[in-house]
Each structure stands twice: as structure tokens, then as C-alpha cells.
Nucleic acid binder design. Structure first.
Lengths: 229, 229
DNA sequence: GAGTGTCTGTCAGTCGGCTGACATTGCGCG
DNA sequence: CGCGCAATGTCAGCCGACTGACAGACACTC
């Protein structure tokens, strides 16, 4: 799961193929046979009946979230190439027309021995997901809403490899409400805090859905990062 | 990581050997060679220099936690047989005299192909850890302190396979302060809430560090579980 | 242009949980 | 036994965040 918004899918270092790349490649031909394609219309809930499935997004966008009757917490948005597993307690909904590949977890486990690169791919996905979970736990346990927003903005920059410097632009690809759900807070609180951060001169609006960094040090301080330089 | 207190180590279903069992078994002999033994005295911090290590607890007890300058959040207590990896941002401290087995992650990855059962073991550890992380996220995002305490108590019962019925006993193996750290709250708040739950008759004290369930329905309601029966 | 829906900003009221402070209990040990 | 220390229970004061409500901004359609 990519904790950031519309995740630019596979940014894989030289460790090996991602699961998505693997099944498209030559050596994954047999593996591909395990998967069935499925289409989801916009707003369609992924049926919780098919648990224990591995899914790969081919096209579209999925939102993964935890829910109670009264509140929802988004865990991630999945873009084409992203991989997820339904055996967690998370729900999944299609944000737009989406097609995905599905395979039962048992089948994948059976293939593990046959496709050595598959092991590494699966472990890598799990490790990355775990890392993002810990980021979320840190957010919820240690950081105020303002800090979480600052961290969210900094992650957005880091994901593109941009430094947090004066003039750096941040494209908000989600609505305030969606960001609030991702940070575990209410829409109104996120809106107020963001406004306050602008009023205090740390950032500025640049048209609809765009921000510019004015005071990197303030952002980093709110994010609870060690001040360097 | 076992989210519960002093985790009764391996309660593995019939899926295969755990990593800890695997390295002790015949077929793990070569694997064992990757590991070096290390001893930690009580209160010793696991050196953050050796990142990217797989560790297996042999004897003693470790606490895994996230920390800032001003606060700590315990993620898990590791008992003999438990497995963890240091590549997360978590810190580790020995609660008592502890000995553990250490292997570089790279070495383990190299062995993956040679020991097919190892793949399953590693994936299982990661999946379990991820599941516990999601439980913690649910706690922090959806449940009040009272709810988290109720959920903690219910998990304790479930872990022993006991039902939450009138008269069921709960052994608190941690101090209130340690429980608070595990639930992401302050010591005082945890203490007050626990006292209130007792005052309201849902549970009762039974000597030092022991509780009895008096009103299972109340506990389940606080925990936010669907009321059945 | 008017009408409609969505996204957004903002406010007052309320409450849960944190902080700091202090009293109490229980246990180990000289 | 009495001292000391750790673990607890409890309180008042404060603050951050949620709730509900409403108004403005923007995009789309007819």
C-alpha cells in the first residue's frame, strides 16, 4: 500500500522485479495463470467474501481503509502496479473504473518454490506495507494534526525526490476531506490547521490544489524532524 | 511482534515451522550458521548501529517501541521464540537478561532459495506483525482509552483461548504504566479508566495484578464489538 | 444567466485526554 | 520493625480535536 496519494506506482530500486513486473515478464507466465481479471465500477466495494486474495491493480484507483460505523481511516490509495492482500481487516473501494488481477493466496504460496524471484517480491511488498503502517502509528501516537499535515506535505515532496526548500511546489492530489481521512482527523480540523499554517506564513496557496513552501524550517519543526542546517 | 504482554511464544497452527523452530531443526543446520549469538543485560538498548538484522529471542524478554524525546509507545514484548527485524524505525531494549540470535538480513535473503520452508516462515512473521500493527492503528484511530483497555483485556483472554464470560480471570502481567505505553495513553489516564471500569462493576480486582470479569457485555460494548447473544 | 452540487473555510460549544501534583498502598530489605 | 521505593489512585486545570452549523467559492449543467 502506498501511503501517499495517487502513488506513482513502481519506483523499485535495483533489488529485483516487483510482483507486478514479474507477472508481466517472461518467467512469470505460469504465475499469470493463477490470476483472474476483475473489473470494478466507480464506488464499488471490493466484496469482503473473497478474503485471502492477492490483488494487483492494472488500471484505475483503489482506496484501502479501515472503517467503523461512524468513521473511516484511509490507509492507502492503490495505483496501477500496486499490490495488496485482502487478508487484513481493511476494506477496499474503487475510486474510479478499475480493473485488477486476483489470485487466491494459497495459489501464490504454492508458486513460491517454483519462482524464486516471487519470494523476494512478496516479502518486499509486506515490508513496505509494514513500514507505512508504522509511519501511520507514529502520526497517530506522536503528532498533532498540524504535525501530521506537515509530515504529509514533506512526504509528498520526498516521494518526488524534491527537497523541502523555499519555493518548492506541492501538488495536492487529494481533497482536504480525503487528506483528513488519511491522517486520521476530521475534515474541519484539517482545513483549519492548513489555513493556520498558511496564515502563519509557512506555506502559501498557488491556485487551486497547489502549495508553495515559504518556510521550510517551520514545516520541519511542526513535523517533529530534527533541525539540521 | 506479539502485541500482547509476555507472549507465550510459538502458537503455530499446522502451516509449517516457525523461523525459530526451523533453525533448531535438522534441515536448518546451514541456516543456523548465519546467526551469531548475542547477550544483552537488563536495560541494555539494542544498538541501532546494527540495522537490517533478523533476530530471534532465545532467552529473556525484549520490548520493542517507538520513541520521541517526550514519549514512548510500546509495540510489543518479545519472548523466547519470537522473531523480529531491526530494519523498522523501532527501538529495542532488554527488559531482563536476554540472549538472542542475530543474522544480517542479506544473509537470510540469500538462504531463501535454499530453504523453501524459510520463505513461508519469513512471510508468516511479516504478516503477523502487520496484523498487529493494524490492530494498534484501529486502537489509536477509533477507540477511546476505555475502549482500548477493554480490547486489551479481551485480547488477553482470547490469547489463552478463554471466553469472556462471568468469572473469567485475567492476569495482568504488566504494570499499569506498561499497559498505558502499549495502548498509547498516559499512565494516569489508564489508571483512572481502569478504576472507573471497576467502579461501574464490569470487572473486579482479585488480589494484586488479577482481575475477574463481572459483566462481559459491558466489556464487549466498550471494546466496540458487535453485541452477540 | 440561474440553479445545483461539491469542496472549502470558519466559528462556538463540548469533551476526552494530558499534565503536574499529591496521597496511598504494598513490598523488599537493612 | 520502620524506612525507602516503586506502583498506584485521584484530582484540578488546561488544551487539542471533534461536532454541528453555516457561508463563500468554484465547477458543471440547463
Amino acid at each position: 500500500m502506498s501511503h501517499a496519494p495517487p502513488s506513482s506506482s513502481s519506483s523499485r530500486p535495483a533489488h529485483g522485479l516487483s510482483l507486478a513486473e514479474l507477472i508481466e515478464a517472461e518467467e512469470g507466465r505460469g504465475l499469470l495463470a493463477c490470476f483472474a481479471e476483475r473489473a470494478l465500477g466507480e464506488g464499488a466495494l471490493f466484496d469482503q467474501a473473497d478474503r485471502d486474495q492477492i490483488l494487483i491493480v492494472r488500471r484505475g484507483r483503489l482506496r484501502v481503509y479501515l472503517a467503523t460505523h461512524e468513521r473511516e481511516l484511509s490507509l492507502a490509495y492503490l495505483a496501477p502496479g500496486d499490490v495488496f492482500s485482502t487478508h487484513t481487516r481493511a476494506q477496499i473501494v474503487a475510486q474510479e473504473e478499475t480493473t485488477l488481477l486476483l489470485a487466491p493466496r494459497r495459489a501464490i504460496e504454492r508458486e513460491l518454490a517454483a519462482y524464486p524471484p516471487l519470494q523476494a517480491a512478496v516479502i518486499r511488498v509486506l515490508a513496505r506495507t509494514l513500514g507505512q503502517s508504522i509511519t501511520l502509528i507514529e502520526d497517530l501516537a506522536f503528532h498533532s494534526v498540524r504535525g501530521r499535515i506537515a509530515r504529509y506535505l514533506l512526504r509528498g515532496l520526498a516521494r518526488r525526490g524534491e527537497a523541502c526548500a523555499v519555493g518548492a511546489q506541492i501538488r495536492l492530489e487529494l481533497t482536504v476531506e480525503e487528506i483528513a481521512a488519511l491522517l486520521g482527523t476530521a475534515r474541519q480540523t484539517a482545513s483549519s490547521e492548513l489555513s493556520a499554517m498558511i496564515r502563519e506564513g509557512a506555506i502559501a496557496r498557488l491556485g487551486r490544489g497547489n502549495l508553495v513552501v515559504l518556510d521550510p524550517a517551520a514545516l520541519r519543526a511542526w513535523a517533529g524532524e530534527p533541525q539540521s542546517g
